[in-house]
């Protein structure tokens, strides 16, 4: 019995170690590449650990200079922030009141929410063609705000659905007693429901932020210069270019991955429960 116990423990630890190696080695290797010199990265077979730490790729990418990799990378970083924050702002602004109605006064119009969820499942390529035509006709291609507006296709149904599911958990009685005290619509929405919804809305906002930060397809189609090009497009361009500076590509990846990875490590629990809260019921 005791021997069996020990065997089980050993097997458990072997499995955990294998899992740990599987999870971290690819990303760890990306980080090592980003601080290796190009000579270390182009020997055969590889130098697994760099002879000395070389931060020149970071300097190159974070340095603003005319027509350099640094220029497009820094513009990409800025545009990604602008686009993601605008998207989340628009989405929350319009879905919060809508979710309140869907949650508090459910009736036939809740079909709108169902339709929104179905559109969430369709491929972006189903909307992309006419959107491209329209943006190019009115001269809105290569514009961060137009891109943010387009991102609403991805983010808004998701926000509306999650906000509504979370709001269902807040008792309506709180509002009813406020109505008796003469509270108007504004008070109910922003003074009673909103404060209680803050943690949930925070989670929804973060998930929406990660979705926009991650988006590649629309950004690749609708942007083409430093005006609006986003980080995923900059990185994809780096990776598909003929230049073989692997350290530079890896560095771009590490910097782009840093915000979501840090957010994820800090807030894993609430992100995952936020993501599944609505789904388990619906």
């Amino acid at each position: 019995m005791n021997n069996k116990r020990i065997m089980q423990k050993i097997l458990l630890y072997i499995a955990v170690i294998v899992l740990l190696i599987y999870i971290i080695s690819p990303f760890l290797w990306l980080i090592i590449m980003s601080i290796s010199s190009s000579t270390d990265l182009s020997t055969k077979p590889l130098n697994w650990l760099p002879k000395k730490i070389d931060l020149s790729s970071y300097k190159e990418l974070l340095h603003m200079g005319k027509n350099t990799h640094g220029e497009s990378f820094l513009f990409g970083l800025r545009n990604s922030f602008i686009t993601a924050i605008t998207t989340v702002f628009i989405s929350l602004l319009v879905t919060f009141p809508a979710a309140w109605v869907f949650s508090r006064y459910p009736n036939k119009r809740n079909i709108i929410l169902k339709i929104a969820i179905v559109t969430f499942m369709l491929p972006p390529v189903a909307y992309a063609l006419p959107i491209y035509k329209t943006l190019s006709t009115i001269g809105w291609l290569d514009n961060s705000f137009a891109l943010a507006f387009v991102y609403c296709t991805l983010v808004m149904p998701f926000c509306a659905w999650l906000t509504k599911e979370n709001m269902d958990a807040i008792p309506f009685e709180l509002e009813e007693s406020a109505i008796i005290d003469g509270a108007g619509l504004f008070t109910r929405l922003f003074k009673i429901v909103l404060p209680l919804m803050m943690p949930a809305i925070g989670t929804v906002a973060l998930l929406a932020l990660l979705m926009s930060w991650d988006e590649y397809f629309y950004a690749m189609l609708f942007t083409n210069s430093n005006n609006a090009i986003t980080l995923p497009v900059v990185i994809a361009n780096l990776a598909s270019g003929r230049q073989a500076n692997y350290g530079l590509i890896a560095t771009g990846g590490v910097i782009a991955a840093a915000p979501p990875v840090i957010i994820g490590l800090l807030l894993q629990k609430s992100l995952i429960s936020g993501l599944t809260a609505g789904g388990v019921k619906g």
């Binding site: 999870i23 971290i24 690819p26 990303f27 990660l210 930060w213 991650d214 590649y216 980080l231 995923p232 990185i235 994809a236 782009a256 991955a257 979501p260 990875v261 957010i263 994820g264 490590l265």
Partner: peptide, 8 residues
């Protein structure tokens, strides 16, 4: 970490 890494 794997999930948080952007797809690109």
């Amino acid at each position: 970490v794997p999930w948080a890494l952007p797809t690109v």
